[in-house]
Amino acid sequence: MKYILSWQDSAHNTGGVKAKKDAELFLNEEGFTAIKIPTGRVKKLLYVLFKLPFVLMRIRLGVIVVQFPTGTWTILDLITRYVKNLSGAKLVYIIHDIETLRYWSESNNNRKKEIELRLLKRADGIISLNAKMTEWLRSKGVKVPIENMRIWDYDNPQPVRKIEEYNRTVGLAGNLDKVQFLKKIPSDINIYVYGPNKESDYPDNIKYVGNFSPDLLPLKFKENFGLVWDGDEVNACSGPLGNYLKYNDPHKLSMYLSSGIPVVIWSKAATAEFVKNVKVGILIDNLNSLNTELDNINEDEYKIMCSNAVNLSKKMRKGYFLKTALQNLIKQL
């Protein structure tokens, strides 16, 4: 038997919540049974402490998938120890984020890093986001089978966007309180931005469009390219969040591509090679050269990128990348 732990996060309109819901949806299509944790902090805690152990004791074979991270570190520690000690199933993680890489890369708080790594090593198998993340996991002593997903799938309810006139426009979707580089973009470069927590004083070349749910956003996004960039600076993706792009699969990348929208992505991002290989965007070292890079693309080249993105979107909308990685992983357990 195959199971997935169904844990509802409290946040809304975020890529992280959307990614977890989509993963659960695609695994349900693969015949996974959901172990549903109730909503609400107290109900979750009571379920994990008093009911989940008895649910797991009845599972004697198969795999149990847990999306990493889930809940607090204490809750995740309990859940994974129960899976390992009470059930007869293998514990599989689908990694969404590694906080040591995202927030703690420059921190001296080794205790948090040690807790996270201990939890990662508890798995019997791991779905990693990409080869760069897997390389980091191996360097930290994670020895279990690992399969790379390569890119997040995206259950996109909106129609794939039709190829439109190439007018060299660029949009950015995301949590805008983390996007510090926007105020440093040269005044001759226009960026259209979507998402929560907008600043009150963007320069004139930063055009705020609105905040939409992950399911509605693909319909509202009108620009030629989606931007994948993070951190504090425009000459490179810097700071902890910028550096995290070297390991992470940004969910905004999947929103763009599943909609048939080509991307502009930092050349050193972990997913840059994927974008290059499937020919769905532009790799860029420095945002200061964005207009030049856009001018170097003619309309025919842009239409080819759009066509490639549409073909890729057909796979992403069906959960191809997660399903394939998980099928390959289970064979090794």
Rank of each mutant, 00 (worst) to 15 (best):
E223S: 09
G260I: 01
R41F: 10
R317L: 12
I35K: 06
K246H: 13
A11V: 12
K140W: 06
E114R: 08
D155V: 01
L78Q: 14
W266G: 03
S107G: 10
D188E: 14
E233A: 09
S289I: 06
N190W: 01
S238P: 00
G31S: 08
L119F: 07
K21A: 07
Y202V: 00
I35H: 08
N291T: 01
F181C: 04
R60Q: 13
Q180C: 05
A272D: 06
A309V: 13
M57A: 14
F50H: 09
Q327W: 01
K276F: 07
Y82P: 10
I146D: 04
D97K: 06
E29T: 07
Q180P: 00
T33Y: 00
L52S: 09
L91Y: 02
H251R: 05
W229V: 02
E293D: 08
N190Y: 11
V209A: 03
Y320C: 10
G319R: 05
A309C: 11
V48G: 06
Y93W: 12
K220M: 14
H251Y: 15
I163A: 10
M57P: 00
N130C: 14
G16T: 07
A34C: 12
R60I: 04
V65G: 06
V228H: 05
K323D: 06
N13R: 14
E116S: 10
S107H: 07
T33M: 09
A131W: 02
S307W: 02
K184R: 12
S200L: 07
L287F: 09
R58I: 01
L5N: 03
C237V: 03
L290P: 09
V17L: 09
G174V: 03
N286E: 11
S213R: 03
